[in-house]
Nucleic acid binder design. Structure first.
Length: 682
RNA sequence: AGCGAUAUAGCUUAAUUGGUAAAGCACUGGUCUCAUAAGCCAGAAGUUGAAAGUUCAAAUCUUUCUAUCGCCA
């Protein structure tokens, strides 16, 4: 671990510009990163907090093609929305850049050239799938075909979504171009590979041995398993016309792999910032006394812990991350967030729907952050966090103090009389909260802040100034003095979590703007006697059921829209003659046995009594039914379908199915009393 | 598939390296009236995903399951 760093470089994962920012991105990456960055600045550290839009990769041109616009249109649109919403939400990036920026192209190019010159790459000519009509190599998702491992028919060129295998396009059976639908041909192409195997020892020493204790289990576990499995050279270039051109001779029509250029974006963003601020960027990336921390989601672990560090190591000039606190994922109302299905709470929409409530979302996402496992965001929980915690505990405490101060003393802080141990207790909070933040436990840290407000409420309750004001006004002075010190501590310590509220509260208390995190522990007086505070205003307002219902309705409408989109009726196929139809031998059968096919998610192996025989049929229905619930069911069987081996099991027929709008499969079933197995259907 | 992570009270989470399962919210009861029908005090709430094993002792270690997510963008 970097001890006593002179400066911090904090990065937050570059958002991909194929959609706006949603609560999943915020909870996983940007809110924790922002809390960390704000905390460090407040404790007097030199911080560079860097981010930017990731605008390369296959998905951008694919999406552009689909929408009939240029890739540039796509990235400009989303870069604009993303940048503005981050800014309005108070994410305090020192720079938010973009990978289409000239400085980034230059930086990434130079990085590649340095490794190339130093002989850090392996060059290899391989045969890749090529679509002659589109005049394009079919990288990753541009090709679809049958998975060689599980026979799933819609596997992509990089991965099969049914069994999860990592594939390469050339392994696919019956590959088809996702652009034209044509059958691709094989064509030779040259690519550059980073030999990750060369860095295996370095990664073992640095992470597997060096960060066993301080890195999160999900991060550490994944790195260890990759290293233990043996690393392989990884291609860092692609045949594509969107991205950063490979800056060497003979590489026309090739660009850097998006995962090669994207993390370099952190460096480019730092350069851009330093130029603007008149600073030197290099210490932030090259000085051993700099602590580098990458905030990411769990899907990015290998890139930030294996590939990028290997790149940095290969380059030789750069420091390595001190920690990579990857978060898990956030779900929304029980379902996975999905940009394509519009299943999300979009930041730019939230900011419109809930003006002035930036901190409510920040707090909810922090208190319910997916730090150790996937979590669920519900609007009901959002409402409860606001009404029961922010309003009732924190907001209410501040309001009590402010109202009483105006009522008893016309807003002027009274002299401290008596002796209260709460003044000492307050001094402990900076260290308590720091300890949580520095261990990347932001959820816990936010709860400690609430505990400070609880301490305030308990203090008032125990001392009852509203009672004593009549018979013992001198004592009340001391009580209110202490309560005001607590309120001041909250104003400062809430800044990383609730920056808008912190500002508002500092305004109400007319607090010294220079009051820092450590002052809360070291200064005897946070807000002095004789000082006048401003008229109060409520920090938080209750959110009523109507507002929550409106959001739930919005989600319900999305669900309906998705169903409607899925329901689009497939056009009628070409005419079949009666003879065509009679070729099909459709029969009634009964499922007598069912079990899951090992190593697949979707397949069930069924034994069906068809009246003719008992035969094995493999059916892709495991996600809709458990084996137990379908045993004994009467189903429609296509009996004379040519046998086919699926996942090593020979299937002798097909069960006729249809589907609900939600994608649940339903049997086409002849379930009327007195129908016998083997009866033909015509 | 394989690998990794996760599974603890209705909900969100703790449990410092095997030693009395602990908080907040919600709930129930009591109480106060300065405050946003807020607060404060107390209480109830658990077969720690399942099963087996190791041990004087298991949320924690082992084995086998199950479920969810990630490993491509």
């Amino acid at each position: 671990m970097t001890q006593n760093p002179k400066r911090y470089t904090i990065t937050a994962a570059l958002p991909y510009t194929n959609g706006p920012i949603h609560i999943g991105h915020l909870a996983g990456v940007y809110v924790p990163a922002d809390i960390y960055a704000r905390y460090l600045r407040l404790t007097g550290n030199d911080v560079a907090f860097m981010c930017g839009s990731d605008e390369h990769g296959v998905a951008i041109p694919m999406r552009a093609k689909k929408e009939g616009v240029s890739p540039q249109d796509i990235i400009d649109k989303y870069h604009g929305i993303i940048k503005k919403s981050f800014n309005d939400f108070g994410i305090s990036f020192d720079n938010y850049s973009r990978t289409s920026a000239e400085i980034h192209h230059e930086t990434a190019s130079d990085f590649f050239k340095k490794l190339y010159k130093d002989g850090e790459f392996i060059e290899e000519v391989t045969e890749q799938l090529y679509d002659a009509e589109a005049d394009q190599f079919l990288a990753d998702r541009f090709v679809v075909g049958t998975c060689p491992k599980c026979s799933y028919e819609e596997a992509y060129g990089d991965q099969c979504e049914n069994c999860g295998s990592s594939l390469s396009g050339t392994e696919l059976i019956n590959p088809k171009s996702a652009i034209t639908g044509n059958v691709p041909t094989l064509k030779q192409t040259k690519h550059w590979f980073l030999p990750l195997d060369k860095y295996s020892d370095f990664l073992t020493e640095w992470i597997v041995e060096g960060h066993k204790k301080d890195w999160k289990p999900n991060v550490y576990g994944q790195v260890k398993s990759w290293v233990d499995d043996g690393l392989k050279p990884r291609a860092v270039t692609r045949d594509l016309d969107w991205g950063i051109p490979v800056p060497v001779e003979g590489a026309e029509g090739k660009v850097l792999y998006v995962w090669f250029d994207a993390p370099i974006g952190y460096i480019s963003a730092t350069k851009e910032w330093a130029t603007r601020e008149g600073k030197d960027w290099e210490p932030y990336w090259k000085d051993e006394d700099t602590k580098l921390v990458h905030f990411i989601g769990k899907d990015n672990i290998v890139f930030h812990c294996i590939i990028f560090p290997s790149m940095l190591k290969a380059h030789g000039d750069y420091i390595l991350p001190d920690n990579v606190p990857a978060n898990e994922f956030l779900n929304l109302e029980g379902n996975k967030l999905s940009t394509s299905k519009n299943w999300a709470v979009w930041l730019h929409e939230y900011l419109e729907d809930f003006p002035g409530k930036e901190d409510v979302l920040r707090y909810t996402l922090t208190a319910n952050a997916p730090e150790s496992k996937d979590n669920d965001f519900t609007w009901k929980d959002f409402q409860a966090r606001n009404n029961n915690e922010l309003v009732a505990i924190l907001g209410n405490f501040i309001n009590r103090v402010v109202v009483l101060t105006h009522k008893y003393y016309d807003g002027i802080i009274p002299e401290y009389t008596g002796e209260y141990e709460e003044l000492t207790q307050v001094k402990h909070f900076p260290a308590i909260i720091s300890s949580s933040i520095e261990r990347y436990r932001f959820r816990e840290a936010s709860q400690e802040l609430m505990n400070l407000a609880r301490l305030g409420n308990q203090f008032l309750q125990a001392n009852e100034p509203w009672k004593k004001i009549k018979e013992d006004p001198e004592t009340v002075k001391g009580i209110m003095y202490v309560a005001l010190q607590i309120a001041s501590a909250i104003a400062v310590l809430s800044e990383p979590f609730l920056p808008f509220t912190s500002n508002k509260l500092k305004g109400i208390l007319a607090l010294d703007a220079d009051l820092s995190w450590n002052d809360i522990s070291t200064k005897e007086v946070l807000i002095p006697a004789g000082h006048k505070i401003n008229p109060g205003e409520l920090l938080f307002a209750k959110i009523d059921d109507k507002e929550i219902q409106a959001q739930l309705d919005k989600l319900e409408a999305t669900k309906k829209a998705n169903e409607a989109a899925n329901k689009e009726v497939v056009p009628q196929k070409e005419t079949a003659t009666f003879d065509d139809f009679t070729k099909l031998d459709l029969r009634v059968g009964t499922i007598i046995e069912a079990e899951k096919v090992r190593k697949t998610k979707k397949l069930l192996k069924l034994i069906v009594d068809t009246g003719l025989d008992q035969r094995t049929i493999v059916s892709g229905i495991a996600e809709s039914f458990t084996p137990e619930e379908i045993i004994g069911k009467k189903v429609t069987v296509l009996a004379n379908l040519a046998p086919r081996t699926i996942a090593k099991v020979e299937s002798q027929g097909m069960i006729l199915m249809t589907e609900t709008p939600e994608g649940k499969l339903v049997f086409v079933n002849p379930d009327e009393d007195g129908v016998n197995n083997g009866e033909t259907i015509n």
